[in-house]
């Protein structure tokens, strides 16, 4: 018989455990490091401060906002062990459909002549609904037909883009009402940032403090154990993909309100930027690990890099090459971290 008594958990210490810093700290340090890198190079190569230019910082964070909103939805999909390749196309589809409900009566090219000057929330609701519907189809396909998320969302990626083009025969939609345009330009042009931060905060709380969040992690960590624990995996996954679609729809609304036009070709590669933000932020592609805060920092890293290379007048081709390399490094680091973990047991 064992003799020790467990009056406090510390009385039966199995191994001394170092108080580990949260993973976000190291990602944050990477962000600061990259910013400092551009600052130093800026003085040498361009003769200007990178961080000292407030309008540049505003542009960075505005650009990050749209990708960031998508990345929050994609993050929870990845935490379930899935992937969503359709977000960029869903942005275009939601944008095209919703834009036709956002037009001002005075605009010369009206798509639905009977539906003009609608209050701002009508096109917003339409955009969210279209996004959520696409997400529902993704989730339904994955849970009912058991096809891999990669394939289901790849199909959606192609089809949603097709719908976006078909909806107005390829012509762009512009001429939005003042009230709708506020979604992208309100609050002293900070509206996209505010929306992004609110979305991130809400889902940070959802993932950490609600049953829904706990179940999301459980499904990604071990779907079989989740099933035995009484979790309805099918309905939960459908909800997760619907939220991802809904947030892609929201990102579309913010984007078209800001640039005041919707085109079928918009949102290209957004899905990859969103996945990259999550992966750089430490979200594990094998599921069960990762946080919204990491994704937010990951999105900022992408934004700073993009802006920094432009600031240094690095050719766009090189930017893509470097971006690709960074994504691969992030995954290699993640794999390495997991190998270390599994070797311990």
């Amino acid at each position: 018989m064992t003799t020790h008594t467990a009056t406090t958990p510390n009385a039966t210490l199995e191994a001394p455990s170092k108080r580990r810093l949260p993973q976000e700290v190291s990602i944050l340090l990477v962000l600061f490091g990259i910013a400092a890198f551009f600052e130093v190079l800026g003085w040498f190569l361009v003769g200007q401060s990178f961080l000292g230019n407030i309008s540049r910082l505003q542009i960075i964070i505005l650009q990050v906002s749209v990708i960031g909103i998508i990345a929050v939805g994609v993050t929870q999909v990845i935490i379930t062990g899935g992937i969503d390749l359709s977000s960029g196309s869903v942005v275009a589809m939601s944008a095209m459909v919703a834009a036709t409900f956002a037009q001002d009566a005075n605009w010369p090219k009206i798509i639905h002549p009977a539906l003009v000057d609608l209050p701002w929330f009508i096109p917003l609701m339409v955009g969210l609904a279209v996004g959520a519907a696409a997400g529902f189809v993704n989730g339904w396909l994955i849970t009912k037909t058991k096809i891999p998320p990669f394939i289901a969302t790849l199909g959606m990626m192609v089809s949603a883009r097709g719908i976006a083009r078909w909806y107005t025969d390829g012509s762009p939609v512009s001429g939005f009402t003042e009230s709708f345009a506020m979604l992208g330009n309100g609050m002293g042009r900070w509206a996209p940032v505010v929306i992004f931060l609110v979305v991130a905060a809400v889902f940070h709380i959802v993932m950490r403090y609600t049953r829904f969040g706990k179940f999301t992690y459980a499904i990604g960590a071990n779907p079989q154990a989740a099933r035995v624990s009484g979790i309805n995996i099918e309905s939960h996954l459908i909800k997760v993909y619907m939220i991802a679609g809904l947030l892609a729809g929201l990102a579309a609304m913010v984007a078209i309100a800001r640039i005041k036009t919707a085109q079928a070709g918009m949102g290209m590669m957004y899905e990859l930027d969103a996945i990259a933000a999550a992966v750089i932020g430490g979200v594990s592609l094998t599921g069960g690990r990762g946080r919204i805060t990491g994704t937010v920092i990951g999105a900022l890293i992408l934004g700073v890099m993009l802006s920094g290379f432009t600031f240094l007048r690095v050719d766009a081709y090189y930017q893509d090459i470097i971006k690709g390399a960074i994504i691969i490094v992030a995954v290699v680091v993640d794999m390495h971290r997991q190998n270390k973990r599994s070797k311990k047991t």
Binding site: R211, K214, Y217, A218, G220, A221, I231, G288
Partner: peptide, 20 residues
Amino acid sequence: ETGCFLPLDIQENAQMAVIH
């Protein structure tokens, strides 16, 4: 295979069946 949520902590593992 069917028990532990390996990436999660002890409390999250312990609470998963009761938080329905």
